[in-house]
């Protein structure tokens, strides 16, 4: 009866059976997807477990206060100069890029969003965000190391700045654009000039978003190795901005194939410190981001 009715109306068979081939195929594919998703999480946990397992034992006061050991020193030593070097170079990069990026973003979002130069600048920033990090190092080498004649923390900072700029610029533009129009118009209605409405109304409202972008850019820059390899290279001594400067990332790279067990342990410990630092920065940016969305 039912069948004849279906035939009359030319309806396909809409009933589902759990064991027909297409249902089985669906179940199979779902299983594969779940397995893939679990497999993709494995590296993250494996990395974290290994960092704690191999580097955790070295987390003590000495790690943060002492200088790196030589290859013949079988225990002790720390990574204080690398931590300071990383902070110093990321700091330089932030000092260069925050005003640079935010001012350009203001123009892109507010003063001339549809102008030709804005389109080109936006495109340049997007292109730069895809630039291989080693190219930033090559660039800093060409303009800083060759002209100054030596490797320095300044050159490292410039290389990191090239990498941070696009992130800061593009996120700042997005958040400035998201400030409601009526806020700006209220400022104009009070007789503000466009710059006053920008600095007194729009920027304070967009600040959390801009900070999110800055923190993300800092987190990324802190872990970058390639741009520092031949701009700041490495040093076993305390920070001297005009000389080669140590950084966490390059320390990990240099000690990663060291024959000295002590240095290798320090590489793991430095990785742990670096990953914890980067994760904290990521959490902070997420926290600021989620707080402002409400």
């Amino acid at each position: 009866m039912n069948e004849t009715k279906n035939n009359l109306l030319q309806l396909p068979n809409l009933e589902r059976h759990p064991f027909e081939p297409r249902a089985l195929k669906s179940i199979l594919l779902s299983t594969i997807t779940v397995i893939c998703a679990i497999l993709a999480c494995v590296p993250l946990f494996s990395v974290l477990v290994m960092l704690i397992y191999r580097g955790g034992s070295r987390i003590n006061l000495e790690l943060f206060t002492a200088l790196p050991p030589t290859a013949f020193q079988f225990d002790g030593g720390g990574i204080s100069n690398a931590i300071i070097g990383t902070l110093f170079m990321v700091g330089i990069a932030a000092l260069i890029t925050i005003p640079f990026g935010v001012l350009a973003a203001i123009y892109l979002a507010e003063f001339g969003p549809y102008s030709k130069i804005a389109t080109i600048a936006r495109f340049s920033a997007k292109t730069m965000s895809g630039l291989p990090s080693i190219i930033a190092g090559v660039f800093a080498y060409a303009i800083m190391v060759i002209t100054m004649g030596s490797y320095s923390a300044w050159a490292g900072g410039v290389a990191l700045a090239v990498l941070m700029l696009p992130t800061i610029l593009l996120t700042a533009e997005e958040t400035i654009k998201m400030v409601p129009k009526r806020m700006k118009e209220a400022a104009f209605g009070m007789g503000c000039t466009p710059s006053q409405s920008m600095t007194k109304v729009v920027l304070p409202m967009a600040l959390p978003g801009i900070i999110t972008g800055v923190v993300l850019a800092v987190a990324r820059a802190a872990g970058e190795t390639a741009p520092l390899l031949f701009t700041a290279i490495f040093s076993e001594y305390a920070l001297e901005p005009n000389d080669p400067t140590a950084s966490l990332a390059v320390l990990i790279y240099n000690y990663s194939n060291s024959t000295s067990e002590n240095q290798l342990e320090l590489a793991w410990a430095a990785s742990l410190v670096l990953v914890v630092l980067v994760f904290i920065l990521n959490m902070v940016s997420r926290w600021i981001g989620s707080r402002t969305r409400k």
Partner: peptide, 21 residues
């Protein structure tokens, strides 16, 4: 979030992990 954190781990740490794990 877990997948995004994968991107946050610096590549030099992945290198170290690759060599020894």
């Amino acid at each position: 979030n877990i997948v995004e954190l994968l991107a946050a781990i610096p590549s030099v740490v992945y290198g170290l992990w690759g060599i020894y794990v």
